[in-house]
Simulated scan of single mutants.
Amino acid sequence: MNIKLLSIISFSLVLLGCSSRLPTEDERQTQFIKNNDKLVEVEYIEDATGLQWVSPTVEASEYNKILINDVGIHQNAKAVRQIPERVLDKVSERLTTIVKQELTRGVEVVNKAGADTATLNIMISRASTDFEDLQITEVLPYGALIGSAKALLGTRDRNVRILVESQLIDSQTEEVLAERVGVILAKGILENDDVDLEYEQIKETVELFTQDIVHFIRVTAYQATLNEKEQS
């Protein structure tokens, strides 16, 4: 096997399996999460994996209301090639709407801070694209050559990754109660490295992702109940 072909196959193997719902090391350089070094992997349901931390001192009886701020978009997520800002605006809008609707069913949602109120902050902190995972036939010598050539020519399908950080804090003291980092991952959604993303292409993925945030709040409430029992 010549050196050129070997280098192309090596390049292909680097690409294999690069996309995951878990944040990458790069993505973990988060924008407002305070306990990044304490985050642990948590999977609520299949393929809904993220990194999460819940304060060991938060107690359930201290909070019975929640204030949900509109989902923000960090400057680092804007002006990303192939991901227009208008699409991120729509993602923000839908996340805000659906999370409020879902949480209203289990807790009183309010519009101002209070002694018994927790605040939920959500931010889209990063957006990016990467190559679609290689198929098994593409890691064989001939397939690797084809797959890598497609990547180099910009014709391989690309994944979209949108990093979302969720933070639950005390609405008055701003003490951090719990945090989660997850990725909205739409695989192979872009046909090449020239086309722009349209919201309709990721609509279903975004709406499914809202369950990550809803489960995050429910798990935090459950952990807070356990904390309270341990304290008593």
Rank of each mutant, 00 (worst) to 15 (best):
D116T: 14
A113V: 10
D130I: 09
A77Q: 05
R94P: 00
V80G: 03
A79D: 15
R94D: 14
L103M: 12
G114C: 00
G106N: 11
F131K: 09
S125A: 09
L134G: 08
E108P: 02
K150L: 12
V107E: 07
R94M: 12
A151D: 02
A118N: 01
A144T: 06
S148E: 07
T97Y: 12
P84Y: 05
I98A: 05
I146P: 04
F131I: 13
L120D: 02
Y142G: 08
Q101T: 13
G147F: 01
P141A: 00
A144M: 06
A149C: 05
T96K: 01
L152W: 10
S148C: 04
A149F: 08
V80F: 09
E102S: 14
A127S: 15
V80P: 09
K90E: 11
N121S: 13
R94K: 13
G106F: 11
L140D: 03
P84A: 01
P141G: 00
E85M: 07
T137N: 11
L120N: 04
V110Y: 00
K100F: 03
L152T: 11
V87R: 00
S125W: 05
D133M: 04
A77G: 08
T129R: 04
Q101L: 13
R156E: 01
V87S: 01
K78T: 15
N121A: 10
K112F: 12
A77M: 06
D89L: 07
G154T: 08
G147K: 00
L140M: 06
T137E: 10
K112C: 06
K100R: 11
L88Y: 06
D116N: 14
D133S: 08
V87N: 04
M123Y: 08
T96P: 01
V107A: 06
A79P: 00
V110C: 01
E102C: 09
R86K: 11
V107D: 07
V110K: 02
L152F: 15
G147R: 01
R126G: 09
I146W: 10
T155V: 12
E132Y: 11
D130G: 15
A77H: 05
P84F: 00
L134P: 09
A113M: 08
F131Y: 15
R81E: 14
A144Q: 04
E108D: 13
D130Q: 11
D130K: 10
N121M: 08
A79K: 14
A77V: 06
N121H: 13
K78H: 06
R86Q: 10
T104I: 10
Y142W: 13
L134F: 15
A115M: 08
Q135S: 13
K150R: 14
R81H: 10
T96C: 00
E102W: 03
